[in-house]
Design a binder for these strands. Structure first.
Lengths: 227, 227
DNA sequence: TTGACTTGCTGACACTGCGTCAGTACGATT
DNA sequence: AATCGTACTGACGCAGTGTCAGCAAGTCAA
């Protein structure tokens, strides 16, 4: 549209230190790395394209060659972490092992990953509500866990290890939501919490709510006046 | 600093429809109401000061007479909802009633409040990570629940209703985090979920993990090779 | 009534960060 | 050496924010 600004520059001074050219994927990965570094020490709200690219030899507009915006970048971070997480949790998802042994081992792996990438993962979670696409990506991420857990629960229901009256879908979602909240809260910002205590707490809730015999429905006292 | 723009206007046309003056708290409450309306239908990310005040007879700068920024407004929304929620949950916090009866009644009340104010509460939760002050306010909000639950758990531990080995603090935080996540997910955006199913699921997890006899520690299979 | 004071409110400004574009120069290919 | 594709950049327009000097509606005193 407006061209008024062109022509005025021509070939100004020229020794303007153009950065060395990268292969596209190379540069993209470089930006992702800087983002990891930044988000390890700062919350997502402090991240701007300018700040991020300042940690680079590239200029701010270069960012937009590789990402649509910061949320798009966050989606890449999520994908990266997601692949690592799914990998360490696969043994449990895949099935096999006792009713809670491999579950516990798997959870321990997830906890470990959260200790490693907590702040970054939290950044993604924080950013999710700000962008529809990213929000969907986050939902899909959570859904993948929900599906796995739901499948496992129904399987155990068929084996009689879990009572039939339990709503597999809702329960799976609730327990996963709990894990996510707790893990992000405990390991999403420094100083991080105690991995062992968290693991123990989460595991005991999972086991208690899934496999624990519910108490023989204690008689409900009749003074139900408590509104 | 620059004053160049003054004096040029003098007393321009003058019939510029100045809005009727309000008493301060009156106008503030009016803005809060508009915010409630807006956030009931749109996510927080779509809220801007201009859009909000456009629903008003006031101008955009007037907003800053009553709030520092949108996060400050969100804090007001939170306080408003918080008072209502604590009120309906008080019977359980106050104690009395059977181990799970009043707990259930109380939870039902909270669920109801979330059906009413879900989207707004979600907006606050979404906005929390964007501002340090608001983030702290949200944490304090959650902490008030955590404290109440922790207290209740230790009380029941003293009565022998809950096993001593359970970590009251961590468990309270985890269960509350679960409730918050699930409630915001189910009722934070339309179409909302099924209140009864959610209530049932959450309640059963609480009861199972707190009061349920944990299964007699199933023997851990020896093929611990699942990394 | 009138003048002086208070204060709710507003137009206009500076500023920050975003996303885009025409245009440049580097490296590869011939 | 000439050409071409493309990684990259300076500069722009835009959206939204927070602030300020100034205005006018109300109040009170004389």
């Amino acid at each position: 549209m407006s061209v008024s600004h062109t022509g005025a520059r021509s070939h100004q001074n020229a020794q303007a230190s153009r950065s060395p050219r990268h292969h596209p994927d190379e540069a993209k990965q470089l930006i992702v790395e800087r983002a990891f570094e930044f988000l390890w020490e700062h919350p997502f709200r402090d991240l701007t394209v300018a700040k991020l690219m300042a940690e680079t030899t590239l200029s701010r507009p270069a960012f937009y060659q590789y990402f649509n915006d910061l949320h798009d970048l966050a989606e890449s971070l999520l994908r990266e972490i997601q692949s690592v997480m799914h990998e360490t949790a696969h043994p449990w998802i895949g099935g096999g092992g006792g009713p809670n042994s491999s579950r516990r081992v798997s959870l321990a792996g997830v906890v470990r990953r959260c200790v490693e990438h907590g702040p970054v993962l939290r950044a993604v979670a924080d950013a999710a509500p700000l962008d529809e696409r990213l929000e969907r990506a986050w939902s899909a991420f959570m859904k993948s866990w929900d599906d796995a857990v739901e499948h496992r629960i129904t399987e155990h229901q068929r084996q009689g290890l879990i009572r039939q009256s339990l709503d597999a879908r809702h329960t799976a979602r609730a327990l996963n939501a709990m894990d996510a909240s707790v893990l992000l809260a405990e390991f999403g910002s420094r100083p991080q919490g105690d991995p062992d205590a968290v693991l123990e707490t989460l595991h005991s809730i999972w086991v208690g709510s899934l496999y624990g015999r519910s108490p023989k429905r204690l008689p409900i006292p009749k003074h139900s006046g408590t509104t």
